[in-house]
Amino acid sequence: MPVMGDDGITVTIANESDIVTARQMGRALSEQVGFQGSDLTIIATAISEIARNIVTYAQRGEIVLRPVTANSRRGVVVVARDDGPGIPDIARAMQDGYSTGKTLGLGLPGARRLMDEFEIQSEVGVGTIVTMRKWLRR
């Protein structure tokens, strides 16, 4: 079950139904922050892609969803964390259509296009952290 705390909402990702939970929680939080319409769909879709990457490649991890404010802008931050195998070649993993697994290879580059900011840190044998943000349009 998702856990709501001061640091936002944490959704444990351990199987494919958690992907649905994560994107629904992400949509609900984004709506509270003030996002509307296509932005809600975009955020939920990006969460779906990175949550699926966790299930496919790391089997287990978590997604943390938080409201953020910076320079008088409001938005949401999504952090996806796993201690899976890590990504040996991040530049390649960020290319459209590159996949080592059973996916279309659109997850990471697609999520980057959907969100305003996207960072990825990964170390082989240690894990992967994806951080992405979407800002409310003023």
Binding site: G37, S38, L40, T41, I42, T45, E49, D96, L104, L106, P109, G110, A111, R113, L114
Partner: peptide, 14 residues
Amino acid sequence: IQPDVAFAMIQLGL
């Protein structure tokens, strides 16, 4: 397919 969904699909590259 809803308009918002179609928009997100295109952004994603689908």
